[in-house]
Amino acid sequence: MSVLVYTENWDGRFKKLSNELVSYGSKLAEMLNTSTTVLSIGKVDEAELKSLGKYGADKIITVTDEKLATLDNRAYTAVIAQVVEKEKSGIVLLSNNNTGKAIAPRLSVKLKAGIASGITAVPEKTSPFTAAKKVFSGKAFAKFVIKTDIKILTLAQNSYEIVEKTGQAAIESFSPSVSNDLIRTKVINVEKQTGKVLLTDAEIVVSGGRGMKSPDNWGKIEELADLLGGATACSRPVSDEGWRPHEEHTGQTGKIIAPNLYIAFGISGAIQHLAGVSSSKFIVAVNTDKDAPIFEAADYGIVGDALQVLPKFVDAVKELKSL
């Protein structure tokens, strides 16, 4: 009845979300008095695989079948199901990122296992298995009870504190059976931006709304994000207008994020926007309207024109960092 954690890799490397998953999986294993197994699909070197032992992985299963070089949801589901069967896993944990969202529901059907997605904390109870998750786009929490023997969980990014341990992980390779006719998707082109902090990974996010007046004013938003090692985001009207790409839209129908610090310039804070950012640890708001709803969600605020405040903000950060 082990806990199985699936983490993808990014060009052979794991990232913070992998460590969060393993930490969370290890905590679950502790609650259930069992062990933590991690499944990695794709080429990852031994040192990188072993690094997951630091977060509580007891065993790491690595699958390097060439047919799995790109993500085919149907094939990945079949492979993970084979590992679940081999390991007799009682819980399967994935990230609630795009990959997890693509695979977890398929796995749920394949294993006839109930799913609680986007959870942010350890289960309240393990019998009956009850985990709280956000519903209505963060406006409420629901206590999800999973009634099946095998349970699938997806963990929201940036929501579980990494815990370092002293354990060593054993590495084991596994050759799944992957029939060729399972894979009907073919990746024909990949476009990747390098060197930019991803919005969903970022600890600090600097965001702009309609109060920024024009896409030409985004230079300072980018400068501040760079200075703070963060990512840039925007509100829905800004992406709808085409001022910024849709990938930056943060809110109910865009990205849901949970950075340590979210700084909003010229965003009034419509309920749909707040749904996407309310899990941030600290929120800073700069807006001309003192009654704007963003100030109800914010920890710190300035009532003022974003275009006036932003350059001063940049200068103050430079000064504090003695640049």
């Binding site: 749920s108 006839k112 296992a113 109930g114 799913i115 609680a116 009850t130 709280a132 519903v135 963060g138 406006k139 409420a140 929490f141 629901a142 206590k143 999800f144 009870v145 999973i146 009634k147 099946t148 309310s278 708001a285 100030f295 109800e296 969600a297 914010a298 920890d299 710190y300 605020g301």
Partner: peptide, 16 residues
């Protein structure tokens, strides 16, 4: 496969 045992509203935040 799952059911909802109850709902909760988030706690309100301290003043800005």
């Amino acid at each position: 496969l799952t059911e909802i045992a109850g709902f909760e509203l988030p706690q309100s935040k301290a003043a800005c």
